[in-house]
């Protein structure tokens, strides 16, 4: 308790907590749809593009957020197109784009400032990265994402479960796909500097996979993902402060622990069911 009170006495840590929790919840909710549709690679691809765009922007002396935001949103459209069209080669194409974006970022940085701590903090995140403006933007983003999941919940379910059926029922499937990809892009850009480009995609993927271990309904998975993401973020952040470990990596490790816990719980439930059946 004392540690938490101490942490909350620093304004930058309060910002990191508020912004981080909001971004974690957004990433987890959007992640449910992306992971279940086998679009997880999009999240990973976008984080690399985001790194490239951010490094180029900093190297050129432009405002990082306002350059990388449109670039990553465009990349989201593009990656979605690749994934929807060529099912077979899409994973290879996304891996290629990821590596290219990463390389562009590194070259741009080393040509100007050299490989400094800046690059390292983009890649692996920094707890100091949340500015008051970032927190405001995160609040706006989470309002949009939560609104989408409350008011269009049934459509999101239909689009995620079965695109063909949703299309036949008159749902504008492409619109929802693009909306989710664009919101993911914004989430990644906002969360990247704190979590790190290499680690941000875990916020998208982990909570869903963790929740799927135990919950059998879509509603259960959605709610649990949001909660798991927020809790893991808080624990990770506190651990990072307490043991002076990097914030992003700590959050990822807590997510891994949560996944292992849920996995063990799943096995336990299965064993119990089997035992009951035998009786």
């Amino acid at each position: 308790m004392g540690v938490i009170m101490e942490m909350l006495s620093y304004p930058f840590l309060v910002r990191a907590f508020v912004g981080g929790i909001l971004i974690s919840i957004c990433a987890a909710l959007l992640g449910v749809s992306l992971v279940l549709k086998r679009y997880s690679m999009i999240g990973d691809g976008l984080s690399h593009v985001s790194f490239g765009a951010l490094s180029v922007a900093v190297a050129a002396g432009w405002a990082p957020l306002f350059v990388s935001m449109p670039v990553v949103v465009l990349a989201a459209f593009f990656l979605l197109r690749i994934t929807e069209n060529g099912k077979v080669k899409s994973d290879a194409a996304i891996a290629m784009i990821s590596a290219s974006a990463l390389a562009t970022g590194i070259v741009a940085t080393s040509l100007t400032t050299g490989m400094t701590t800046d690059v390292s903090s983009y890649m692996f995140g920094s707890i100091l990265a949340m500015s008051p403006r970032d927190v405001k933007l995160s609040a706006m983003l989470s309002a949009v994402v939560l609104g989408l999941f409350v008011f269009c919940y049934n459509k999101i379910f239909a689009v995620t479960f079965d695109e063909s059926f949703a299309r036949a029922a008159g749902v504008n499937v492409s619109f929802y796909n693009i909306l989710i990809a664009v919101l993911t892009a914004v989430t990644i850009v906002l969360g990247m500097r704190m979590m790190g480009a290499m680690l941000i995609s875990s916020l998208i993927i982990f909570p869903t996979l963790t929740s799927m271990r135990v919950f059998k309904s879509f509603r259960g998975v959605v709610l649990s993902s949001g909660i798991v993401a927020a809790v893991c973020f808080c624990i990770g952040m506190t651990a990072s402060y307490r043991f002076s470990t990097p914030a992003g990596a700590s959050v990822v490790l807590v997510n891994l622990a949560a996944f292992s816990g849920f996995w063990a719980a799943e096995k336990g439930i299965q064993r119990k069911n089997k035992g009951e059946r035998r009786l």
């Binding site: 279940l36 919950f215 879509f218």
Partner: peptide, 26 residues
Amino acid sequence: YLPQQTRSQRDFPATVCEVVLSGALS
């Protein structure tokens, strides 16, 4: 409409009730 099943559907976490109810979407 009963479309062809996709691969990702086979391990989708949803209850039977949720799936059937989504038919009322139109």
